[in-house]
Design a protein around this nucleic acid. Sequence first.
DNA 1: CCTCAAGACCGGCTGC
DNA 2: TGCAGCCGGTCTTGA
Length: 298
Amino acid sequence: MYTNFEKYDIILIILQKLKGLITIPELPEVENVKRSLENKVIGKTIVGCSVINEKLIKKPTVQEFAKDITGLKITYLYRRGKYLVFTMDFSYELVVHLGMTGLLIHVNNINEIPQKYSKHLHVLIQLDGNTLLCYCDIRKFGSLRLLRQINPYEAIAKMGPEPWEIGVRKSFKTRLSAKKWTNKTIKEAIMNQEVIAGVGNIYASEALYASRIDPNRLVNKITDVERELILTNIQDILQKSIDLGGTSISDYLNGEGKKGQFQNYLKIYGKKKCECGADLKTVEIKGRNTFYCQNCQK
DNA sequence: CCTCAAGACCGGCTGC
DNA sequence: TGCAGCCGGTCTTGA
């Protein structure tokens, strides 16, 4: 089926099967969506909008969303954490979150949407030049918000630093030192978007494994050196995944059937055994499945 | 007013 | 074949 992708402008590839688990769009995947999409949509004017499933439109009302977005020109596209933000004329912003199974795809015709997603098409945005920006979502965990720039989206306003922004080390450590985290586990803390942007369940597990730190440890027991190490590993792992994710999308477009290379570098998430040979443990932290090695992570 | 844990939201998939 | 339960990012709810 991958050969079919050759003629499609696939913007996001998700649902890579991994021992019963799935990869969901976290920072690296959303970054690749942004890079793939920006050249296609910047400068385009929205000439129409159809909302098939109203549940995904969070702001404003569905009727207002479709009416207000029509006629706006997309001037810029950026990523903030796991959110995609389309900057528009007249100080509007379209804020999109892909949830777990969101797909943003730019096509000439809705028939080009992969079959798997076509029955989960929820929002159709017509661009000038007769192309379509489609939002599909199997589990409907995603969201679209059309906002005025003067009223920033709260989740983004209070979001922690981007992993590579200037001052991230200081900001990360300051936020991690907040009273609310002292008796929480380190994994829960780094998964929270207010501590650092873009880290989800998979990358939290991987970064803590790379840091040799037990995800169950409480934040107030994590030394300053260890906090630095965690941030460094978050940066390295996310960057590597961004780079590999780009390769993956390119492979799909080329119809080579490759599933991307990032999963080949996973050390812990979804695994049964550690590289050291020990059986991995799983524990539920904040309702999320957490993998770690009792031998390597202390 | 605040914090915060738990529940809700979903449907493809697995396993019994 | 049927169906309960798993999975998880974010928002909502209620204590």
